[in-house]
């Protein structure tokens, strides 16, 4: 099963490599990993999407907690949470498909962030399902390149 972990870490050099190294050394998989500073500049928040059964998830959580630089690990998947990802899609734009690309982008509340004679670059955010649907619809029109941030996530409500 897929799990989204929120990992609060010390904002120091080498921490990302400790976390990534832990996953590779113990054979855990990482689907995506996203990291940036928090309001407190001495801390960073990592959002890690991983897979595993109950026993593996227990190990992943415990092993992360064991790292000295890790302060808190929360498995968001056990509760209600919201996750978002940002995607940039560069389309092969021609006279004939330009309007269609914009229409689809509009439906998904995308935004054109760059345009040239041959390309259109769209920015969009959303959860996994929405972005998958958008890519699916844009594919036949000619995707040149995509870049995505990986997920960031947060618990819902006051928690």
């Amino acid at each position: 099963m897929k799990h989204t972990l929120s990992v609060l870490v010390e904002n120091e050099f080498g921490v990302l490599s400790r976390v990534a190294g832990l996953f590779s050394a113990r054979g855990f998989n990482i689907e995506s990993l996203c990291v940036a500073e928090t309001l407190d500049p001495t801390l960073s928040l990592m959002t890690i999407v991983t897979r595993g059964d109950e026993m593996i998830m227990e190990q992943i959580t415990k092993q992360l907690n064991k790292l000295i630089n890790v302060i808190k690990v929360t498995d968001l998947s056990a509760r209600k949470f919201v996750d978002r990802e940002l995607i940039l899609i560069k389309m092969k734009a021609t006279k004939t498909n330009r309007a269609e690309i914009l229409r689809i982008s509009d439906i998904f509340r995308g935004k054109v962030v760059d345009v040239s004679h041959k390309t259109l670059t769209i920015e969009a955010t959303g959860d996994e399902g929405k972005l998958a649907a958008m890519i699916e619809l844009l594919k036949p029109l000619g995707i040149k390149e995509i870049a995505r941030t990986g997920k960031i996530a947060m618990l819902r409500g006051a928690q």
């Binding site: 026993m55 227990e58 190990q59 415990k62 092993q63 907690n65 064991k66």
Partner: peptide, 11 residues
């Protein structure tokens, strides 16, 4: 004392 040792190999 090490939580990672618990339920690592044997439930």
């Amino acid at each position: 004392i090490d939580p990672t040792s618990i339920s690592k190999n044997i439930k």
